[in-house]
Structures are given as structure tokens and as C-alpha cells.
Design a protein around this nucleic acid. Sequence first.
DNA 1: TGAGGTTGTTTACTCATACAAATAGGTTAG
DNA 2: CTAACCTATTTGTATGAGTAAACAACCTCA
Lengths: 246, 246
Amino acid sequence: MRQDRGHEDIRLPLASGSRRIHGSVARDLGVAILGGRYAPGDVLPGEIEFAEQLKVSRTAYREAIRILSAKGLVESRPRTGTRVSQRSRWNLLDPDILAWAFESEPSEIFIRDLFELRMIVEPAAAALAAERRSSLDLARMGHALEEMGRHGLSTDEGRAADQAFHTAILEAARNGPLVALSSSIAAAVTWTTIFKHRRQSMPRDPMPDHRALYEAIVAGDPEAARRTMTELVRLALADTELALRP
Amino acid sequence: MRQDRGHEDIRLPLASGSRRIHGSVARDLGVAILGGRYAPGDVLPGEIEFAEQLKVSRTAYREAIRILSAKGLVESRPRTGTRVSQRSRWNLLDPDILAWAFESEPSEIFIRDLFELRMIVEPAAAALAAERRSSLDLARMGHALEEMGRHGLSTDEGRAADQAFHTAILEAARNGPLVALSSSIAAAVTWTTIFKHRRQSMPRDPMPDHRALYEAIVAGDPEAARRTMTELVRLALADTELALRP
DNA sequence: TGAGGTTGTTTACTCATACAAATAGGTTAG
DNA sequence: CTAACCTATTTGTATGAGTAAACAACCTCA
């Protein structure tokens, strides 16, 4: 028999998701690195040893490492081994990395940095969107807004709608790289929103701000769109800071 | 001779660089996808067939695919095969992806999008840098500026200095995710600069703009820094557009 | 007729093993 | 003391065999 993996060998579909093994390992290691369990400069155990320890084959382990390496988290060379890269080489805007960062509660500084980035990018994107939006874009924003109003931000549907609203705006800006930022930032927005509600604090009703922004984009007024988006992000940051220090 | 590797087995070290095989394959496929040889939705040949065709083992091929998948370029599932993802899932800000995009001459639209992003991010970053820069940051900027003046943008050293100048500014903004954008944008800047000179057009001397920006950051004046950086990017865009349509 | 389960086939996924390449660090010759 | 040369260790590549997931066509039963 090839390899009697024995009795059971529960692949814990809850703890590590339903992905393939290489994906799970990449995720687990990614979370560990983002969470600080492995610091930049640290050398991981050798392939054979570590793969054994994780109870996966070298093949699967190596594919996981390739994923992390593609995202700039680790670098491996013969003889030296695989070591965690310097933070400056990490691809902090990669959607997976953001997700992993929020898996173990991220630092306040990191959250503030993300909001600072939103503050830079989203108002500008809103202004572009006000100039370039098609009627289809408007329809998508309007629909998302409606859904958001119906469900509120404490439900999954509501958060999905909020995310759809922001995504629709960024896509209306008609700029590929900007849309790439979109998925990352939109995801981060969702995570912080979850945090807000997890902390039980009851944030202000976000609908008026969102509606004002929508109106500005409908009106095709870039400067108004920029102003309202700035305000929206500022208030979201204020809420989040309240939630972080109750 | 260290080790007679047999007859020949030319791994064409020029065509594919000196990386490991999985890296070369990832790069080649990445360039092919970014260059449009494989369109979103296309299904790649099966593992066995394609690996054979590329004359590499399935192991190396699969690791290459993991890299591409980590960057959002492809998705693979049993039965369906590996297919190129929709553009919206591509990680357009990933440094490798940007590099691959510029490998086969990128579209004018893409370049314009990148400049639009620079126009959004870099002035804001310059403003933050003016507020937060340390004396070390200033020293690095000053040094880069000096090098840039000495070599000019037609040499590798000069371009490296230009890139170092922009990187120093973004790092002075003290924002992790922003720095992640830095490497991508800085790289893109360098490539567009190469394009400019490759097209033989002789762009305007960039030093006065750079010096004015430097002065504003030294003076700790955010608004001046924002203005001068905006102007710098605008002029760079104008030069590039001239180079693109001679 | 049509909804729901069953089987079968295709494809990527995982595993194990063997060997090749690269290189850091020690060792030796000059 | 420098520089060339080993060599042990670690990642990289290759191959073959077996596993599991996704999909399609079929088949069963109300």
C-alpha cells in the first residue's frame, strides 16, 4: 500500500478553509508572518522538517512557499534556507495579504495607514467617477445604496452592498490600476466595519453621507464628489478610532 | 570542470534570465498573458502537455502556475483546467506584473492610467513627506538629487537615482501601504523614462522641478510640496505623451 | 415529463523518492 | 594573509503513481 495515511486525518475544513492544501498552508504561514509569529529576517525550518511538521508533502509545502514568495513575504535560496523578507518588500496591497493581516488583529498604526491611503485615493477616484460615470455605473451604485439602506451595516448583505458601492465608484473612474487598489481597499473597509460592530459600539448612521456622495456623482460634480467622499472617509475613520479605544 | 552536465541542455540563460526554472516559466507566461497572447477566459493546455511543451517538469511548471495564481493572473481547478482570470482580478500593482506589462510594449491607456495614479498618490505623499521627513530622509533625497544631476536620465545610474529620490519621498511619508505602492510606481516611472529615451525624443531638463520639490520638503511646506510634485508629474506625463506620438 | 441521484471521465492535486544545482563556510596552498 | 578549492547542507528539478474534485451524461423514480 502506498502510504497508509491511516485512520482519519481530518483536514479540518473549518480551521483552514476548503481550499487545496497548498492554499491552506500558504494562508496559515501568511497569517503567522503578518501576525508577527515570524519576524523579518527569521529563517524557517528546512523544507523536509517543516513539511513533516505540518503533515504535508514537500511538494505541497513548496507550492505554498512559492505563493508567499510571489507576494514578497519570503525569499528562499539554496544553502541559506527560506527567510522572511523585510517589511518593505511585502506586497501590502495584495488582497490576500490584507486579509491575512486582519486575521490576527492588526496594529492601530496599520489601520490608520490604510485610512490615510483611502483618504488619498478614494476622494480622487470619486472625482474621476463623477466625470466619467456611465448610466450603468449609476444604476449599480443606486442599487447598492438601496440594498445598504435596507439591510444596514450589521448584516453580511449590508456590508456586501457597502463594498459594492465603493467598488462601483472606483470602477466608474475607468482606471485599471485604481480598480486593483479597489479590491484591496474595499476588502479592508469591510474588515474594519466588522471590527466596528464586533466591538459593540454603535456607529453613526452612514446612509446620509453615502447618499450625498451618490447625488454628487449623479450630478457629475467632481469637486462635490471629492468633498463628500473625503467627509465620508473622515467619519469612518473617526468611528473606527472610537471602536479601537472604547 | 566542476561537473560535466552532459552533452548540452541549454537552459538559454539569456532569454529567460538567471532565475530558477519556475521563476523563468512564471515570467514567460506572465509576459505572454500581460502581452495579450492569452486572453482572459482562455484555458491553458493541461499540465502534462504544457510542461512537456515547455520542456520542464510538472513540478517546476506547477510552481510557476502557483506564482501566477498568487498574483491573480490565473485560476486553476480540477476538471476545468487552468484559465486566465478576468483583468479585474489581476493584481496590477504587483511589481512583477508591472514589469511583465512593460516587457511587451504596454498600451497607451495603461501608461496614462499609471500617470493618473501617480498624479493622485505622489502629490499627497509629497505633502505628507514634507510634514514627517527626518533629517535622514532629507539626506537621502539630497544625495539622490545630486547623483541624478551628475548622470542625467539617459544613464542607468541617473535613472536609479531618480527612482531613489521618489522612493525616499514616499518612505518619508511613513505609511506602509503607501511604500508598497512606491516600489510599483517607482519602477513604472523608470520604465516610462526608458521609453522616453528609447524613442529618441529629448525631454526637457527635469532637474529644476526636482530641486523645487526638494526645497519644499526641506522647508516642511506640505502645500508647496504638493504643488511642485503635481507639476513634476504633469510635465513627465506631457513628455511621455510626446514620446508616444512623435 | 422532469427532478434528483449515480456513474464515469477528465483534470488538477498530493505524495514519495531520487538526483541536480548552488552556495556559505571552512580548508588549504601560495 | 589572500585566494583558490573543497564539501556539506539546503533548495531546486524530475518522474511516476495514486487521490480527489468537478462536471456531464446517464439513469432512476415520482
